[in-house]
């Protein structure tokens, strides 16, 4: 048990701790958290707030990847959700009322769920490879978002809507609370029911699962829809945070960050066993990396270079070739020691 835990979460946690240490050296007050106006402030709070959208999407992405799939369209769904919500709020006579915001959010969520079902349909019913199926929405989605915003950046001034991205609840940022809620929801939904087992089973061996009576079609619909749900929530948070829907830039590259978080968290892109906890750590690693780049004083725009380095290192570590090489090295070591003993 101990060993399994170590092999899955060990490296992501080490990575996270290393980043913390770097931060601590560059900025001694890194761990300090202050309470101002009953709101918590501090670098760590910034990390959990700014990392919330990536984490939320990464949770959905984890389940999709567990079924051997991938969802490239989440960034586009973010943009659509934001665009829908903002255009409804702007179009209403009373943008500041809670009712308007609730309607806007509900409509945005419903539209996003339909898009998730669409992805699920392409993958589960038409049998199109997931990367290709979701590429369609990735391409067209931003066009749809622009269609909704009519090419404008829709700036909204609606206090209830702003709460999503920059409000506080119980002293914590609302975005963080939402992320934690979705994390708990996903964990309960997949681990307290049999969903997790069935998803992993389909991801590892679809044919054996079929023969055991598992209905993979329904599962695929469920994970793609859930992923779109997560994307929509993240899109609303991002939009609220910027107080504007920008069809071009809301959630740009977030699909890549989310996939990266999943991969860092130790869930294999080949599907199968997944770890939501790993994904959580992975998302924190990414956000801390971004923060580190700031605190260390590297131009923030260079973050992508570091991300590239992380993707490469993580993938190389997970690669079968590397594992085989390690295994060979270990056997040669052990056989050498054995020979040494024999001699």
């Amino acid at each position: 048990m101990n060993r399994i835990f170590a092999s899955r979460l060990f490296w992501p946690v080490v990575m996270l701790l290393a980043l913390f240490i770097v931060n601590l050296i560059a900025f001694p007050g890194f761990f300090s958290i202050e309470l101002k106006n009953e709101h918590l402030f501090g670098s760590l709070i910034d990390i959990v707030r700014n990392g919330a959208p990536t984490l939320i999407i990464a949770i959905g992405m984890t389940l999709v990847i567990a079924t051997r799939g991938i969802d490239l369209s989440v960034g586009a769904i973010c943009a659509i959700a934001g665009a829908v919500a903002c255009s409804i709020i702007l179009g209403s006579p009373d943008p500041g009322s809670v009712g308007t915001v609730v309607v806007a959010i509900v409509v945005a969520m419903v539209i996003s769920l339909v898009l998730g079902v669409w992805n699920g349909f392409l993958v589960a019913v038409l049998g199109i490879q997931p990367i290709i199926a979701t590429l369609i929405l990735m391409t067209a989605g931003r066009g749809v978002a622009m269609l909704i915003t009519e090419g404008q950046i829709l700036t909204v001034n609606s206090p209830p809507f702003k709460v999503l991205g920059s409000g506080f609840l119980f002293g914590l940022p609302v975005a963080t609370v939402i992320a934690v809620a979705i994390f708990v929801l996903a964990a309960l939904l997949t681990r307290r029911t049999a969903l997790g087992l069935l998803i992993e089973s389909v991801g590892i061996n679809p044919e054996a699962s079929r023969q055991a009576g598992v209905r993979s079609r329904g599962l695929l619909f469920a994970v793609y829809t859930f992923c779109a749900f997560c994307a929509a929530v993240a899109g609303l948070i991002l939009t609220s945070n910027q107080t504007a829907a920008d069809a071009n830039n809301t959630g740009l590259f977030i699909e890549l960050d989310a996939i990266l978080a999943v991969v860092i968290g130790g869930t294999s892109l080949m599907g199968g066993r997944y770890s939501l906890l790993g994904t959580l750590v992975g998302a924190l690693v990414i956000q801390t990396l971004v923060t580190t780049v700031y605190t260390v004083g590297i131009p923030p725009i260079a973050t992508m270079v570091f991300k590239a380095a992380v993707v490469t290192v993580v993938c190389l570590l997970q690669s079968p070739t590397t594992n085989a090489a390690f295994a060979r090295w270990r056997t040669s070591l052990s056989s050498r020691t054995r020979k040494g003993v024999a001699a």
Binding site: L135, I136, L137, T139, A140, G141, R142, G143, V144, M146, L147, E150, G151, A247
Partner: peptide
């Protein structure tokens, strides 16, 4: 408007 290009591309891809 220009965003129709993206939508058309998406539809053609599909």
């Amino acid at each position: 408007s220009s965003w129709w290009t993206r939508i058309f591309i998406g539809v053609l891809l599909l």
